[in-house]
């Protein structure tokens, strides 16, 4: 099984440790993982701004980079959802459909494909879990609070395999953090307020760390935490599951 590692652009540029943890974690399960060197971005920033057509270049590039892999895995629910829903290359529909069907967010790949039963990881801290909306409501990584349906959480299951971790309850378990792609600057005031409220929910419940499936959400929350000079830190779920967080 050949796995193509898809690292979203902002992780490559700002949070390489998340990508390293993802790679190491996948390798621990004996997987043949490769990072295609010519990758850039899924095209979501353009598409969510209304310019889906402008992401054609990204789409073509994505297909070139990832068509050859059995699975494509990324530590981001949002970017994966974008590819699943919107990847489009006119002249290569087969490759597109292969990628759309074979792309996974890291947690769902671990629970559904690798079927992880145990992890060597220790994280003796109080942790709040912020689930990214696209991963949750788009990829169904976890049950959504709006629905009358049985509860489940793929990332929650994985965190439950980590030693010493104490997951805190939040007042609003799946409220959006307000990042929203270009929304974070085009609606900066609302975006920041949503982030502040999300941080507050974690702080009130005693979180030492905020973790999540999407670095974009965490980047936004971290920006607020640092501005407010809070001691709370953000950490991507891959870093916790990999067990080598410093």
């Amino acid at each position: 099984m050949k796995v193509g590692l898809f690292i979203p652009c902002y992780i490559d540029q700002f949070y390489p440790q998340v990508a390293v943890a993802t790679l190491q974690l996948l390798e621990k399960f004996g997987l043949d993982v490769e990072y295609p060197m010519q990758q850039t971005c899924c095209g979501q920033p353009m598409a969510n701004s209304g310019f889906g057509a402008a992401s054609a270049g990204c789409d073509t590039l994505f297909v070139q980079n990832f068509a050859a892999y059995d699975y494509i895995v990324a530590p981001s629910g949002s970017c994966v959802l974008h590819i699943k829903e919107h990847l489009h290359v006119d002249k290569d529909p087969e490759a597109v459909s292969h990628i759309r069907n074979r792309i996974y967010e890291l947690c769902e790949f671990l629970t559904d494909v690798v079927q992880v039963k145990e992890l060597v990881a220790n994280f003796p801290h109080k942790v709040g879990f912020h689930i990214g909306c696209h991963g949750q409501r788009g990829l169904h990584l976890a049950q959504m609070s709006e629905l009358v349906a049985p509860d489940f959480s793929k990332p929650g299951y994985l965190l439950g395999l980590v030693q010493g971790i104490e997951l805190i309850e939040l007042s609003r378990k799946d409220e959006c953090c307000g990042f929203g792609g270009t929304f974070c600057v085009s609606e900066a005031a609302v975006s920041a307020k949503m982030g502040q409220d999300r941080v507050q929910d974690h702080v009130e419940h005693g979180a030492e760390y905020i973790t999540g499936t999407d670095t974009s959400c965490l980047m936004h929350l971290e920006g607020i935490l640092r501005r407010q000079k809070r001691p709370v830190k953000v950490v991507h779920i891959a870093e916790i599951l990999n067990g080598q967080y410093e």
């Binding site: 490559d12 700002f14 390489p16 990072y35 060197m37 900066a188 982030g195 502040q196 607020i224």
Partner: peptide, 25 residues
Amino acid sequence: NPWARQREMPQPPKETFRDWYKKNR
């Protein structure tokens, strides 16, 4: 900068993941 009005900018790391990968794999 509308981001920075109420948020800190992320701190750029010393290397990108691509650079790390080239070195380490």
